[in-house]
Design a protein around this nucleic acid. Structure first.
Lengths: 355, 355
DNA sequence: CTCTCATGCTCAATCGATGGTGCATTTACA
DNA sequence: TGTAAATGCACCATCGATTGAGCATGAGAG
């Protein structure tokens, strides 16, 4: 058998070899054969022939004809944090379980880029789109609805499409309370000892700031001056914010809340330029979970959004007729310092050493 | 204009509105119009009409006819480490620059799963496949070559397709030398103080073990007993290995090499169950770079594979006629403790705070 | 004034799968 | 035995873009 020289089998090949018509073959192989009253005998004959010839349907042809591509899209700002890579991983599993091929793209927090990549997904007639972390969810919504593509926002709310989001406010409250209590064990805290870095003017950040202030004022009272600094989702801008604070006060705040693990990388850059005294005795909270972040030389509390629940709800919302944009809140989890949770890595089928 | 009610424009719509034939429209929009001797005037007319109607080509139709889908595949074991998520991110950028839509899937280090996901990519007629971290690269090769899909191995060598790989042996030598030198500053080292954890019986692990032993025997001599433990790429198995070592010796090795960041998560789990004494004064090296890993409470040296260069070489190899399987070695980078390198996150267009 | 050739475009088949329509058989039943 | 209903399947247009082949038209040569 010169398999290597063989082109991929089509329904026409199977049609000839089986004696049935191409449409019968098609019906058998896509499962609609009962509806089309094909006999079980014929079906069996064709499926076993298909296996023998290693038939797999040409998805482009199927998509062209039926305008269902079997692709599920996910747009992220960026892959390269443990939060978003977990999201991508979990999305892949869930999409695959539903018979879809996941296509993940990143918009890099740039509205034009977001549109470009979404347009490119639309050109492939994706069946649905999960929007996680677009700067302009409503712009993306416009593209999708023009193309009649069902879509949901994940972890950010849009006004025009349904959304599944973490309860940022409660999460921030819990996180703030946790770091304040921890720091208080090491001495009294004044309002100026409790600070927040990172984020920008988006929904998640606003909610987190509200939660932060609410817990803070309850436990240590309000600062007179500003007690938070918005730096965008940028490691370098965040690093500069830490440098400025350090220059002004000769130390970092005793206790602070970092808006996301991307901003946390700004703290790492600061740490790389200073020795340990600069951050002795600090207590840090971070919205987002990173197992390595949990083991730094100072206590780090983290919030882990419940990714798989968010995605599952997202898939459910896609199926529901979308007359009104609903919002589903999902509780995130507070992770104590020095905690290495299980995650997608534990699903690897590689648990038995063989060397 | 009830744009929302409009279906997507096709070349036939443009054909009617422009007065040109569909084939002319097609030629203009796919760039082959000079070859087909379409006048510049006609081309301009059609392109501007296309913009006006927001035309984008139906990729399924294009792919079906021309059997070039515009999709570039990447198969990873898993997304959820900083190494693989950087790889995915960089791959996306490079594929996009070449006009391709990246499709990333994970095979979870399971041969059957790898085949399944690759088959699903083949069903979408991907134009090329990058194989990064398959347990069975030659099995994947078989599927690709039957389907005539150009492919390269990234960071693992296959016997049948060209490969771009990190110089694991040299990297491991450099890493081992670095941790030994560091540990020696804190006192003499015996061969039993230098250990290796993680990996399995794959090419990368074998090379790293060779590099490890070569540097170790040069600097501190050989152990009599075993000085390495293969745990697979599994956090939990690695954690158990640390527990066993600790139970036996009452301490961790002074100085050890961890095969990958996935295995490093096993150390985190160990750390989560013990207090600081268990890992005071250790010096750790890890093959893979994770910014958070670089700032743990003990010195961590890391090796960062040169991802973008590997991928660029990979794209080059795809273009070359693939009569013989070549192997290209790329030097990785040694990263000193407490180093936060710039990376994909810095390309985010979010460097200006706006809140 | 005819012939040749370049120019500028159109025609129609094609990629592989889908699904509405409709034609033969077979079965059921009077 | 004749007719209606159920069964089993084939025919063919269709999705939208690509591409080899070929038809007009006008310019230039002889």
């Amino acid at each position: 058998m010169n398999e290597k020289e063989q082109k991929k089998a089509t329904i026409y090949d199977l049609s000839i070899r089986s004696g049935a018509s191409a449409s019968t073959v098609s019906a058998v192989l896509n499962g609609s054969w009962r509806k089309r009253r094909i006999s079980e005998k014929t079906a069996k004959r064709i499926t076993s022939l298909a296996e023998e010839l290693r038939y797999t349907a040409n998805q482009q042809a199927r998509a062209l004809r039926s305008s269902r591509s079997g692709l599920a899209g996910l747009i992220l700002p960026v892959y390269d944090t443990r939060y978003f890579s977990s999201l991508a991983q979990t999305f892949e599993v869930q999409a695959r379980n539903r018979g879809l091929l996941p296509v993940v793209v990143s918009g890099r927090r740039c509205p034009e880029e977001e549109r470009r990549v979404v347009e490119s997904l639309v050109a492939y007639s994706i069946d649905s789109l999960f929007i996680a972390g677009a700067t302009d969810p409503d712009g993306v919504h416009g593209i999708c609805s023009r193309a009649r593509i069902p879509h949901v926002n994940i972890d950010l709310p849009g006004n025009l499409a349904s959304s599944v989001i973490s309860d940022n406010r409660q999460g921030a409250r819990a996180l703030t309370a946790a770091i304040i209590r921890h720091a208080q064990q090491m001495g009294r805290l004044s309002p100026d000892d409790v600070y927040m870095f990172g984020g920008r003017d988006d929904h998640a950040s606003r909610e987190r700031i509200i939660g932060f202030h609410s817990a803070k004022s309850e436990l240590v009272g309000c600062s007179r001056g500003s007690d938070s600094e918005s730096t965008g989702y940028s490691p370098s801008m965040t690093a500069m914010a830490f440098e400025r604070f350090y220059k002004r006060h000769g130390t970092l705040p005793r206790c602070f809340f970092i808006n996301s693990s991307i901003n946390f990388e700004g703290l790492l850059r600061f740490m790389g330029k200073h020795d340990g005294e600069a951050f002795e005795d600090i207590v840090v909270g971070c919205f987002d979970y990173d197992p390595f972040g949990s083991f730094l030389p100072f206590p780090v509390y983290m919030i882990r959004p419940n990714i798989s629940e968010m995605l599952e709800k997202g898939f459910e919302l896609l199926d529901i007729e979308n007359d009104t944009a609903r919002i589903v809140l999902i509780e995130p989890q507070l992770v104590l310092p020095r905690t290495a949770l299980e995650g997608p890595l534990d699903d690897l089928k590689d648990s038995v050493p063989d060397g």
